[in-house]
């Protein structure tokens, strides 16, 4: 079941690991807003310092953060290249047809690259130091004010926890069915696209069936135990807001205000 724990969580007990997931989510949101508000190079320096401090405090090797860049690498190179070669400006250093490198282009490209780097590092910091379950719990808490606009917070909370519980089970189930089909000679990895999609049908039908079966069983079990609705449901995992969370938030907000001003 080990590989079934999905996500990129890197186990540890550092200061960042121990922070409340709600705090980490709030800081992430403020951080993204900040990225849009700042304009000067020294603001980038400040936010860069914040991210660097977070990375160092988390005790996770930089390698894991750099790995987070990989899926976005092409998009990063593409947009940075676009800014670099197609921004027209006053001081042109190099020109070839429509391509040119100007001072303005260089500055824009650097800012875009920094923006990417900061956003990706910050969100990687969240996912590396927080278990998916904890993030989901945190989101549940942060969604509560939405009750005012009749958002079904309790229903969503119930669905989130059931879904998280059954992800590993369904992955197990899928692997099992896949192996069973492979033993009968189904090839999932080769052949034309049409052929491979067709091979998925005998995998997906049992999978869908068993999901619906699980749902029916669970419904019966919950109804017979008298489950009503989410109001007043007690929790197994309780999030605790500590003093260090308050201080971290205060420090971050002060830095944020300094960066914007």
């Amino acid at each position: 079941m080990d590989k079934m724990i999905f996500g990129r969580y890197y186990p540890g007990g550092s200061f960042i690991h121990r922070l409340d997931p709600r705090l980490k989510l709030i800081i992430n949101i403020i951080f993204i807003v900040l990225i849009f508000l700042i304009k000067h190079w020294y603001d980038y320096l400040i936010l860069g310092g914040v991210v660097l401090a977070g990375v160092l405090l988390s005790g996770v090797s930089l390698r894991f953060f750099l790995r987070g860049l990989r899926p976005m690498l092409w998009l990063i190179l593409f947009t940075v290249g676009l800014q670099l070669f197609f921004t027209s400006g006053q001081h042109v250093y190099w020109q070839w047809g429509v391509l040119s490198i100007s001072q303005e282009g260089l500055i824009n490209a650097t800012y875009i690259a920094l923006r990417f780097l900061l956003i990706i590092f910050m969100s990687t910091l969240l996912t590396l130091t927080t278990q998916p379950l904890a993030i989901a719990d945190g989101m549940e808490y942060l969604m509560r004010p939405l009750k005012v606009v009749h958002f079904p917070v309790n229903d969503v909370a119930l669905m989130l926890s059931i879904a998280l519980r059954f992800v590993p089970k369904l992955m197990d189930e899928t692997t099992k069915i896949m192996n069973a089909q492979r033993a009968r000679g189904v090839d999932f990895n080769n052949g034309s696209l049409i052929k491979r999609v067709k091979a998925l049908i005998p995998l997906l039908i049992p999978l869908m069936m068993s999901s619906l079966d699980i749902a029916t069983d669970l419904t019966t079990a919950m109804i017979s135990r008298g489950y009503r609705d989410g109001e007043g449901r007690t929790r197994y995992r309780i999030l605790k807001w500590r003093r260090q969370d308050t201080w971290t938030l205060v420090t971050f907000v002060i830095i944020a205000i300094v960066a914007v001003l």
């Binding site: 059954f166 699980i214 009503r228």
Partner: peptide, 25 residues
């Protein structure tokens, strides 16, 4: 009606789990 609502929620939750499982697979 309430029990029917619960059943729909649970089926939705299982579909969510299936979405995640299929993404990883």
């Amino acid at each position: 009606k309430e029990q029917h609502h619960l059943r729909n929620l649970i089926i939705a939750a299982l579909v969510a789990a299936l979405y995640v499982a299929l993404t990883y697979l």
